[in-house]
Design a protein around this nucleic acid. Sequence first.
DNA 1: GGAATGACGCCAT
DNA 2: AATGGCGCCATTC
Length: 109
Amino acid sequence: MQPETLNFFEKVYQVAKKIPYGRVTSYGAIATYLGAARSARMVGYAMNGSHNKDVPAHRVVNKKGLLTGKHHFDGTNLMQQLLESEGVKVKDLQIQHLETVFWDPAKEL
DNA sequence: GGAATGACGCCAT
DNA sequence: AATGGCGCCATTC
């Protein structure tokens, strides 16, 4: 299917792809950056289609730095493994030093 | 066509 | 301050 919303999704992919190595961002941050503000869910939904993209969805977490979508990756701790592999300390789906690794598109992009 | 769901987040109580 | 409920927009049953 080719919904007209590809524009919105595409934006999400563009931003997600620009996430620096060893950094993470939140759905809300991206949503706000795109102007969706309270539509953080859309960002997460967009990630569903990011599977075939070059989008590092594992670098996108919720506002708390919690790897809520790790279930959608492989069903295991793959997401956490990837983050830790990039230097991001993760403790049971919870990103450590979040404010340090956090990457805000509205500020840094 | 209508209702329910979903990788979240903010507002209200 | 903490917990609960509602909203956002698109997709799917």
